[in-house]
Nucleic acid binder design. Sequence first.
DNA 1: CCGATATCGTATGGATCTCATAATATATGA
DNA 2: TCATATATTATGAGATCCATACGATATCGG
Lengths: 169, 169
Amino acid sequence: MSSVSQDGKQDEKQDGKRQRRRSTTAIKESLRELSIQLSLLNHQVGGRLGVKDADFDCLDLINRHGPMSPSALARRAGQHPATMTGVLDRLERAGWITRERDPGDRRAVQVRALKERNTEIFHLYAGMNAAMDDLCAGYDEAQLELLAEFLDRATTAGRRATDDLAEQD
Amino acid sequence: MSSVSQDGKQDEKQDGKRQRRRSTTAIKESLRELSIQLSLLNHQVGGRLGVKDADFDCLDLINRHGPMSPSALARRAGQHPATMTGVLDRLERAGWITRERDPGDRRAVQVRALKERNTEIFHLYAGMNAAMDDLCAGYDEAQLELLAEFLDRATTAGRRATDDLAEQD
DNA sequence: CCGATATCGTATGGATCTCATAATATATGA
DNA sequence: TCATATATTATGAGATCCATACGATATCGG
């Protein structure tokens, strides 16, 4: 350890680096674990609603990013367009979404989520929602801002990494 | 706004609360967005390796939480035991895992990941990994600790919310 | 305007996957 | 020992995925 070294100053620096690497690794680990856990939560919520994982992801995207075309959705969800037809059929049949022809381009279709049913989803997330409120309550405004910015940057990093993998064909 | 009110002090307090609610909501939003993005990244990585999303999740769980039985894995991944047989068949055929009978209980099976192949996975995450290193480099030690703790707590919250939903049958 | 071509969503069908149930092998307890 | 419980896997019916094809519409060059 440091105590056997001749040069305490340099050891300190190295310890700092080591510690930093440890912290960074810990964050990446934690992030991964969190990601898995949130997927499992989605799986549970989706299961309650009788919606398959992939379908639920799509419904979430529609809810979050407004009305959009099936092909845009397929791109966003990383699925085949023909698969999306099946997904939308199920979601439409179960009353989660509607399909409307785009007046501007009559080949196109706009997929829209039915807001009325969002309360059902919201209700199932109530537990997690409350827990997150509690968790956030323990931080001051500056810390919350730090956290939000970190999360956004991590998202951007994820998007870039994903796109890089997708493009290099 | 505040300027028209008779009681600046109380307005300040209310603004603080409003701001806090906004920040908390922003964090929850960001977290959700991040979760989606990481799922898409996994989807890309899995796609590159010719492994389906669900299968890849299972492989990840095996890698992360050591050797385990198919039923334990099914529970963790939220899947039917019979489905897990198919998942493990595919992963084994593709050389990602091995199945060994448990000497202690010869009904049981231990599923073990083949570490040699982990470099393939790791390599595909290299981009995201480097981006996260860059991101973390912008924070000091105390901030990194704050972030890690937040992520861990959020994971715990997620696990609790998931278990609550799973149990209330 | 017209014809060629591109794009959008979806139908089709074969391969694959899921999962309830049954079957097999082993363990456990009375 | 025998009944019951447990871990995993086989079976098969139904659902899903997706490469491809198709019909409808849009766009563009001439």
